[in-house]
Design a protein around this nucleic acid. Structure first.
Lengths: 223, 223
DNA sequence: CCGATGCTTCGATGAGCAACGAAGTATATT
DNA sequence: AATATACTTCGTTGCTCATCGAAGCATCGG
């Protein structure tokens, strides 16, 4: 009858599983032992948890040799986790946003950027008319298509039907939407490839180099 | 450090609490005993659960004589619950949306309408230029203000700063956004007051009378 | 007042489940 | 082949927490 929200919530309600899931919010595929370390538990219990998360389809797994690489099952799971963060943060503490200033400025959210920079980027793209937003998704304008082609993007991989360009992925710290979806993914990868920024190896932070930040802001006309 | 999403999710992870919360998605304030009945538990255990839900600020309570009326703490909680429904439904079963056809057509989501009719209403308002949508909220256009004043709405109570006119409240069955917020609330109340529709006493369904439906569709130019 | 109703507190029970040690399977490395 | 690494399965332990009976407040109706 009613959908079983309790058993879905139960997957996130366990502290160890919650730690694993937030670790996977970084977007990287992690092995079972890495996740066990992240959650401070032994490999056995981690295996148990991961089996449950797979069964409930919160995660997907790729087997490579003797390793198993786990990932969030998709953007929808990432969105759910971030929205839980927004709420639990509003509820438990007064001050908004992450404590770490570098996380506040820019961090990875599944496969795209979040934080102050991401929100500013979104505004800039909107202002230049490169993206057009509807209520729950947004599309590339013709001008936007030309712009991203000029940056070297392959539009056939970006404008897919199965996944929108942009989704309202509510920003945990900023409480505003930022650019998710295939375009958000491309922009993050592009900035990393060009060496403008680097991903922190332990946290979800994205560190821009001084010149990388200038180049990034210049490229997208961010004020 | 990281927000405590586990304890928030734990509130929803218990089947009894989940039943109470979904019952409160109907928007009505319910008493402790009514919620106990809804969850099939005794008054004692219900009291225990409700205390926890209050402490975690998922609910608010209004005391009236010897009764206590519980409500969801706000629209943000309703949104979270609906999004959990969307996901758990996608996951556990193949077919989308509620089984009950009347629920699928129109139902209450906290304090506004959801379902096919609500999605069609949203499209109609957008098409006529009465509402303008941004990515995570939307506003009334001047033409929209005139339109709703002509319907007898008091704009001072609708255009409040603390709560947006419309929020992307993802529709469980339609998987599209519908009109939430103060305007959505007003439209539902107005339709009920005018006798166009009635709320089901047990489920969340909204039943339109034949002429009420004609009047409603005519009023908002829904196709 | 006194009984009835609505809700809460306390204590006991019991079930579910996270956790780990130990042992087993699979893959890699030498 | 031999050993190390990655993950799983099994059985046990122990803790958390939902549940309810019993008893206790508070409020309403007469």
């Amino acid at each position: 009858m009613d959908p079983d929200i309790a058993s879905l919530a139960a997957m996130i309600a366990d502290p160890s599983r919650a730690k694993m899931l937030t670790a996977l919010l970084g977007g990287r595929a992690l092995t079972a032992t890495e996740l066990a370390l992240e959650a401070d538990i032994t490999a056995q219990t981690a295996s148990n948890h991961l089996a449950k998360l797979l069964e409930k389809e919160l995660l997907v797994v790729r087997k490579q040799g003797r390793h198993k690489y786990f990932q969030l099952a998709g953007e929808h799971i990432a969105r759910l986790l971030e929205s839980l963060m927004v709420l639990s943060h509003n509820i438990t503490s007064i001050k908004t946003g992450p404590n770490d200033p570098s996380l506040k400025m820019s961090r990875v959210c599944y496969d795209h950027m979040a934080g102050e920079v991401a929100v500013a980027l979104y505004d800039a793209l909107l202002k230049q008319g490169f993206i057009l937003d509807n209520i729950d998704h947004c599309t590339l304008s013709p001008a936007g298509e030309r712009f991203f082609i000029s940056l070297g993007a392959d539009l056939t991989t970006i404008t897919t039907k199965s996944r929108p360009i942009c989704r309202p992925c509510l920003d945990w710290s900023e409480r505003r939407s930022h650019l998710a979806g295939t375009l958000g993914q491309w922009i993050l990868n592009d900035a990393l490839q060009k060496g403008w920024a680097e991903r922190d190896l332990v946290t979800r932070a994205i560190h821009f180099s001084p010149r990388g930040k200038r180049a990034f802001f210049n490229c997208y006309a961010i004020l």
